[in-house]
């Protein structure tokens, strides 16, 4: 599932494609040489906020459109400037038993999220994903994760893996404190939204062998 870019629309343009660990379309077929992608919004992405914004500016030759555009932009700015509020959750034992959103996630959406480079899971993990060669091996294979862990444990691991292992390299996907020099476009925001976490938890719980 490709989600629209949620970067602050007032942020400066992204650096040219090619920064990060590879952006956009892989130019080389050999998987050894393939670059990886962690940026949520490649500059060339048709779903990026920049594309939308310029489309908006293009239609602004009509006065009413300008007014509409300005209002839209202001709303977007207000949303972008405000740090995303984290929903409160309760840790019980070694897990978070209750859904962060109050409703169950969608496993199919969760699978698509885990496979999306921008979610970053398969940078490190491999799993039962025959359709992609580009899987990492810095972390355990996700096959059977649903046997090894309860939904409650999976939820806490995604929210803040450092609760299980303080030295872990696995990022905390639903935490905004204790971080250093977070990029302008990401500051104050968790890596994933509460709904995305729930979708991924629902998917991981289905990984039983």
């Amino acid at each position: 599932m490709e989600r629209a870019c949620r970067h602050d629309p007032s942020a400066p343009p992204h650096p040219p494609a090619g920064e990060g660990w590879g952006e956009g379309v892989p130019t080389i077929e050999n998987p050894q040489e393939e670059r990886t992608l962690t940026r949520r919004c490649a500059a060339s992405s048709p779903t990026s906020g920049r594309g939308k914004r310029s489309a908006r500016l293009d239609i602004s030759s009509h006065i009413p459109s300008i007014v509409a555009a300005v209002i839209t932009l202001n709303l977007a700015l207000a949303a972008g400037a405000r740090a995303e509020e984290l929903l409160p959750y309760n840790i019980v034992g070694d897990g978070i038993p209750a859904s962060l959103t109050g409703s169950p996630g969608d496993a199919a959406r969760g699978r698509a999220l885990v496979l999306a480079r921008t979610t970053t899971c398969i940078l490190c993990h491999s799993g039962p994903f025959p359709e992609t060669r580009f899987q990492g091996d810095l972390a355990p294979d996700l096959t059977g994760a649903g046997n090894r862990w309860s939904a409650s444990q999976l939820r806490l691991r995604l929210v803040d893996a450092s609760r299980f292992n303080p030295e872990t390299i696995m990022p905390s996907y639903y935490r905004t404190d204790g971080l250093v020099r977070v990029g302008r476009n990401f500051a104050g925001k968790p890596i994933l939204s509460a709904a995305e976490i729930e979708d991924i938890v629902a998917f991981l719980a289905t990984l039983r062998d």
Partner: peptide
Amino acid sequence: DNFDKRLAGA
């Protein structure tokens, strides 16, 4: 800590 491993296949 992780050279010789693969980040998304690289």
